[in-house]
Design a protein around this nucleic acid. Structure first.
Lengths: 151, 151
DNA sequence: ATTTTTCCTATTTCTTTAATAGGATATGTT
DNA sequence: AACATATCCTATTAAAGAAATAGGAAAAAT
């Protein structure tokens, strides 16, 4: 439980690479050189991003992928939703029909609503551009602190 | 990814039930009446809690389970670790040998270190007793707010 | 034509979770 | 002693999702 999928981890790395590459098209092969992944596996991940319109593709020689919008317009929440569409953090919240009547006296539900709210707060406040910067600075806490207001 | 396991959800509900029952032994059958689970499945969950010494068992007629320590001495983090021993939120952190050299320039790693820190902060600050209270109040945010200092 | 590269569809493998099953052992009650 | 109530123990199966691989079709540049 609460395991981070490699699909999302790699997806983020791919998007960060594309962002660093600016307006050029990066081929999967090129993305592979910097990452230790197979062409086929990256392909399957980027295919999802492509179908959702997060990247623009160009076929044939000199083709590849680039971001479909500025890196600071892509939130990490958006990426998560794209890459893990059918998986629900908490079914009884996202699909109420699964566990209707327990509602607000269910301790698990209350706890995870609270946890999820905090995760989402971070994922919504950060963008791919922030990740690029965090990677350069080797620090993300400062960026988060500047985004999220303390109550 | 980031899916909450039913094992943990049910485990919490079981512990909250035991807490509400005070010093009496609750049989699995009794726990079943309030929850919509089979005897066998609850048994398999509570067996884990028992092996780790979180509950005390008594066999035979009038037997059952009760908490091994006060409900306010059992943190939710402890429960999570007990029920999901072998699952790592982020392998490259918890088992560094998996992904050594990417370290602090890996965007995923930075992000999830930050997210994990916030989840752990909540899980460590709350106890089973808090969950009992949250369940009664149908609110957990007030409790969390009183525990976690804003920076 | 040839090379590069995306695109599409399918399959396999692996891990983990979820759930079930049968019977052994202990304990209180009658 | 017999019986009912419970935990305990050890498997096994089923289902889901994640991870990874495979082969070839289609497009575009040189």
């Amino acid at each position: 439980m609460l395991k981070l999928s490699t699909r999302y981890r790699y997806g983020l790395r791919i998007l960060v690479s594309l962002a660093d590459n600016g307006d050029c098209y990066s081929s999967i092969k090129h993305l592979c050189d910097s990452q230790e992944l197979t062409v086929k596996y990256i392909e399957s991940i980027i295919a999802i991003l492509n179908k959702k319109g997060m990247v623009i593709s160009k076929r044939g020689a000199l083709g590849g992928y680039k971001l479909s919008k500025p890196a600071d317009a892509i939130t990490l929440k958006e990426v998560q939703e794209t890459l893990n569409e059918s998986v629900f953090f908490l079914e009884c919240i996202e699909k109420p029909e699964t566990c209707t009547d327990r509602s607000n006296s269910c301790p698990s539900r209350l706890l995870w609503l609270a946890v999820k709210a905090r995760i989402d707060e971070i994922l919504e406040s950060l963008t791919i551009k922030d990740l690029c910067e965090a990677s350069r600075l080797a620090d993300i806490e400062t960026i988060i602190a500047s985004r999220i207001q303390s109550p």
